[in-house]
Amino acid sequence: MRAVTFFDGDGMHDGTLDVRDGRLRLLPRAAPTDTPHLDGVITGLFTDHHVHLQLVDPDLLPASRLGRVIDLGADPDWIAEVSRHRVTVHYAGPFLTAPGGYPSDRAWAPTGSVREIADAEHAARTVDELAAAEVSLIKVVAHSDAGPVIDDDAFRAVVRQAAVHRLPVVAHAEGAGQAQRAVRLGATRLAHAPFSERLTDTEIAAQAASASWISTLAIHDDDARAVAIDNVRRFVAAGGEVLYGTDMGNGTTPVDLREAEIDALRAAGLDGLDLLTALSPADPLAGGALLLLPDGDPNRARRLTAADIDIDTDTDTDSTEP
């Protein structure tokens, strides 16, 4: 057995790691004082809060360091089937956008992954249909730099009907003023940390009080990345919640933890417990795969094996423990 430190989503704790029936087991109790300590921090697998599984190979997920992903734009029938056979997958189903709005004109958008919303009545009806399809959240697009955007009445109708079904609304907000507009109209999460413009401190404070941001910092070029990092740094200082997300499928991205995203979050001032919290790791006490973070560095995280504690995997080291 080994004495270990583990992170359960709330803080660091002392624990004990051993092997039972050939499987690693983390116990929420301090090991005896003479037990060797395993260097590093143990967590559960991480969460990517912004992925597009139709644009990557989802069969790669089970071997990754991700235990949960949030798909923010896919054909609802396709993603529902994928979610039954992979790691934990929550999904929004299609992008909800204005007629002719982004990404309805993009070749990369799979058939069925976009719904063009004509008006408020259509918006409410679409949310009802998606709720019946068991989506976990609703995604609205407000990308004014790429075409028409869903109008205020339709946006409010999405938010109102999503609330009926207790579904959060996440917005792709791009273009001047769109991040503020999306949150003002009721979105409680932005799919991308704002990158189109530097928000004022007053705007940052309003955002921090009303919405969380999914990072996606590494997808941007130098100028947009600098704007996004500056916004995130001030958003965190104002008490805002940042969630790790990569926009997996946007360009060449790993179907795994993205080290460039971790580096960008550090550049924005997130490190230590703040960074681990943004990664939303699964509870390591719940069973399943465990990760070891050497020096607490997520970029060096790897799956633990019995060899890490030098125990014969056929040995039951604590047969009295339930």
Rank of each mutant, 00 (worst) to 15 (best):
T47E: 07
V56R: 13
V114P: 13
I42R: 01
Y102A: 11
H52M: 07
I138D: 03
V114S: 12
L61R: 04
E116Q: 15
I70F: 13
R65G: 00
G67F: 10
G40D: 00
T111M: 04
L96P: 13
P58H: 06
A118D: 13
A133I: 06
L45P: 00
T111I: 02
A132D: 14
F95V: 13
D48T: 02
V135E: 03
D57M: 02
T35P: 04
A118Q: 15
P103T: 03
A131H: 09
L61M: 06
D119W: 11
D119R: 13
I117P: 11
D48F: 04
T47I: 02
V89A: 08
S104Q: 06
G101E: 10
E129N: 12
G93N: 12
T33A: 14
I138A: 05
R68M: 10
V41Y: 00
G93C: 14
A107G: 03
F95Y: 15
D119P: 15
Y102M: 06
L45E: 09
S104T: 03
G100V: 09
H90F: 12
D48W: 02
D128S: 15
D105K: 06
P36E: 09
L137M: 13
V114W: 12
F46W: 06
G40A: 01
E121V: 14
S136E: 04
A124H: 09
R68G: 01
A120C: 12
I70C: 05
A107P: 01
P76Y: 07
A30N: 11
L137C: 04
L55S: 10
L130W: 12
H85G: 11
W78F: 10
P99M: 06
H122A: 15
A132K: 12
F95M: 14
V82K: 05
W108M: 08
P76A: 03
A80Y: 00
L45W: 02
L137H: 09
T35E: 10
A98H: 12
